[in-house]
Design a protein around this nucleic acid. Structure first.
Lengths: 176, 176
DNA sequence: TCACGCATGTAATCCGTTACATGATTCC
DNA sequence: GGAATCATGTAACGGATTACATGCGTGA
């Protein structure tokens, strides 16, 4: 029930084509809401039918035309209404934890290797976040309000990855 | 692609009816993989067709019959093979972060109130986890290997909730 | 010439959610 | 009498995933 909201949120940052949006969902918004290009094109069509976004066809030289989507006033109101509604914490869905739950069915070394692999992945993700932080959010207090909100989502990601790193290390030590 | 694995993981702990499983998915496994009873009954039927679980009908007095499901040898091997395959970190999917991303569209007070509501929810979840920890995992080093793995999933949940609490507080302070 | 980036879509399948449906027992 | 618990399912719909499909331009 929230992909349309994620798309409107991403579009409210700036007007985008479906293609541009798909790339945004592979970074920035994509760090906390995933979507494939097929989902995006389908939803954009529906959003246009409902009048929540408007499309403008842009002719380009040497490249296929593109449809530039913009959030309409109605779309902005629709999004704002959704944001204002209280919601519950999103459920966790994590494969690694499912694996651990039945971890005794395989050799301990396999689990430890998997934990180390994940530790490494979270480390890489964390350093990517840190680079974004240094590049765009060096002085948080000086940011505009909209940037402050984006900054907070990044801070959430940083804390999340740090916590995973700490847990992986704890788990490896505990099992060794 | 992992609901069947989550069901097999839960069933590998002990034989269960569909009804029992549905309750387990509302706690323990359910803390990191959600499933409704309809999903569970559907998957159990399929798992039985594939020979990964076997069912035994138990007649009960004063209560409807129940089907007790057990993981078969093939099922155990199927699960173990899946666990041994390396996997990537599970994607995050979080509504609150989507809301924040476009948070400038509503009054700041609405966002702060939402952050406070979430802070409270995470606090409650954390204290539930802490109670489980004290009750069943008071002496972690003394646990059997299978219990150690469950303990680690709980430790993950505790760290996760603590991190969310810290972030909510940081975000509220930052916006105030 | 071959891969990659830009740009948009259809089709099929599977997973998840919600509502509907039944029926006995136990506890307040 | 009504709500909650035990126990299992069907039906309909909508969301997500994957594969298939096209076609031009640019740079190695």
């Amino acid at each position: 029930m929230a992909l349309i909201h994620a798309i409107l949120s991403a579009l409210s940052e700036r007007a985008c084509s479906g293609y541009d949006l798909a790339k945004q969902f592979d970074g920035s918004v994509g760090f906390f809401w995933k979507a494939t290009h097929q989902q995006i094109y389908r939803e954009l069509t529906r959003l246009e039918e409902k009048g929540l976004v408007s499309a403008e066809i842009i002719s380009q030289e040497g490249r296929p035309d593109k449809k530039l989507y913009r959030v309409t006033e109605r779309g902005r109101k629709f999004l704002a209404d959704w944001i204002a509604q209280p919601s519950s914490m999103s459920p966790v869905k994590d494969e690694l934890l499912v694996k651990l739950f039945a971890g005794h069915l395989v050799e301990k070394g396999i689990i430890i290797a998997e934990l180390e692999r994940h530790r490494h992945q979270h480390l890489e993700r964390l350093s990517a976040y840190r680079q974004i932080e240094q590049k765009y959010f060096a002085d948080p207090q000086a940011l505009d309000l909209d940037e402050k909100f984006r900054y907070l989502t990044l801070r959430n990601g940083i804390g999340y990855e740090q916590e995973w790193l700490a847990w992986c290390s704890e788990a490896i030590a505990f099992l060794s």
